[in-house]
């Protein structure tokens, strides 16, 4: 589900919208989501934002319902500077997010284990630093997959 072509290192994005559009473009290019996907994710993000607190940092997991998804995939972006996302638990509160996982999930039940492992990064500071400090897509995939093993 996470492929090297879905990894963006040190994105220059200045906002949640920019990083969501940048990652959505990768999904569209590889035809795993419909053209309606980015707008649906952005709309959802406005109403129900997706930043989650980790240990000393925030991660965002923007996504939308499966009607916009053709095939499941996860895109990852590290950022040159953190961007503001609303908190899932308190949408009025904006936080600085350092890592973004854009999710395209065709059937959540099918991918529960993977999603659960993705959540594991929130409580694993060492793993997060490894991911944030990665200098190639393969390095990020290795770090994440070591967590999935």
């Amino acid at each position: 589900m996470i492929r090297p072509e879905f990894v963006v290192l040190q994105s220059p994005a200045n906002s949640a919208e920019e990083v969501i559009r940048e990652l959505s473009e990768l999904f569209i290019r590889h035809q795993i989501v419909k053209d309606s996907y980015p707008a649906a994710v952005l709309e959802r993000e406005r109403e129900y934002p997706t930043a989650l607190p980790g240990k000393g940092f925030y991660v965002a997991i923007p996504h939308t319902d499966s009607s916009h998804v053709i095939e499941s995939g996860i895109a990852v972006a590290t950022l040159q500077t953190p961007v503001r996302f609303g908190l899932m638990s308190d949408p009025a509160e904006q936080v600085d997010v350092s890592l973004v996982f854009l999710l395209a999930v065709a059937d959540p039940r099918e991918h529960l284990v993977l999603l659960k492992h993705l959540m594991g990064i929130l409580s694993d500071t060492e793993l997060l630093h490894k991911v944030l400090g990665s200098s190639s897509a393969d390095e990020i995939l290795d770090a994440l997959q070591s967590n999935f093993a």
């Binding site: 109403e47 129900y48 934002p49 959540p108 659960k116």
Partner: peptide, 9 residues
């Protein structure tokens, strides 16, 4: 928010 991913997890 979407009634699917986080709630299913």
């Amino acid at each position: 928010g979407s009634g699917t991913i986080s709630s299913t997890m």
